[in-house]
Design a protein around this nucleic acid. Structure first.
Lengths: 191, 191
DNA sequence: GTCTATATTGCGATAGAC
DNA sequence: GTCTATCGCAATATAGAC
């Protein structure tokens, strides 16, 4: 399907250069067609972009759903580590998706800010509630020291966001930043 | 000085919309002059941008120099916390600079990537060496558990980068993410 | 669905009067 | 140094043949 090839080509370019710096000519070249042919598949550049937003957001949603399901029987501390490893693995193995998502998250195109960002914001809120619930459970089970679960969840995402930034910035990333989450998780344990 | 007013106007627009989406017309409007007048002060859009890169990078360098100097007599654990607070304060009180810097750091304009990024990369390497040295000192003084100072420094920056991302994304940021660094620092202490 | 040709707009940059 | 007027170009998007 040509529309899929267009989408893949555009995704890479949007991730690398951003929405504004990517032209339809480049997308057409990378796809192996001529520029006007794109309009047979998408109404315009923005619609193509928003289609990719949906697609990439879904892969991210799926990674989270998978991580939450697979870790459901683990103890809270182990579960937090498992999820961090799972999501950071998603980042490392899908660098193009990661760049696209972080670009969208921090610096969305000005003329579609609300539209493109809404599903990602909802996703983010769900994740923070899920992580807060795990912290809460850990505190109830007296595995973690008592604290605000919401604050702890935000600190958790602080670390995860930093991880994603460094994956983007350092191509020869050595992945040992995962040490950070180990320290973080262990430090909350009541010993 | 008109060139300073141009620079300030352009800085805000580049930070909010990015290099590609910002036009010289907008910069001129915001400055209160007409578009061609910009060329009396700067050779072109890119030169204006690179001038701002230098300016903002210098404010960031100054914030780090200040934080390092003021904390020189503190114990390693307290010093790491002090520096984190100092730099995160710089982020919070200079959100425009922060957006500009993070945008440049993660997604530089494609046609000036090396030129614009080099000073920031050098700065980043210096900072990581400085932080690693503090970790090393803490280990030598048997305040911290033995570990790789470089790895610990990277984990430290992981947290700091995540902090900056969240300052950008959440305007009503409640600042309690600083809890993260407290946990992080305390967890390394030999108790 | 794909193409060539073209319309149309807005960009960065320049010329030249004041 | 600032302006009006304009150039040259590249961008999104459209028309219409095949």
């Amino acid at each position: 399907m040509t529309s899929q090839k267009i989408k893949q080509a555009a995704l890479v370019l949007f991730a690398e250069k951003g929405y504004d710096a990517t032209t339809l000519s480049e997308i057409a070249d990378k796809t192996g067609i001529k520029k006007p042919s794109i309009y047979a598949h998408y109404p315009g550049k923005m619609e193509l972009f928003l289609d990719i937003v949906d697609f990439v957001t879904e892969t991210y949603r799926a990674a989270w759903t998978d991580a939450l399901e697979k870790s459901i029987d683990l103890a809270p501390d182990e579960r937090l580590e498992f999820i961090f490893f799972a999501i950071s693995s998603y980042y490392i193995t899908n660098r193009t998706y990661l760049s696209f998502l972080v670009r969208l998250w921090l610096f969305p195109p000005v003329d579609c800010e609300d539209k493109a960002l809404l599903p990602l914001q909802e996703l983010s809120e769900t994740h923070i509630k899920n992580i807060a619930a795990i912290f809460k459970q850990g505190m109830a089970e007296k595995i973690f020291a008592l604290d605000s679960p919401e604050e702890m969840a935000k600190a958790y995402f602080c670390l995860l966001d930093g991880y994603s930034s460094r994956v983007i910035r350092y191509p020869k990333f050595d992945f040992n930043y995962q040490k950070a989450i180990s320290i973080f998780c262990k430090s909350m344990l009541l010993t």
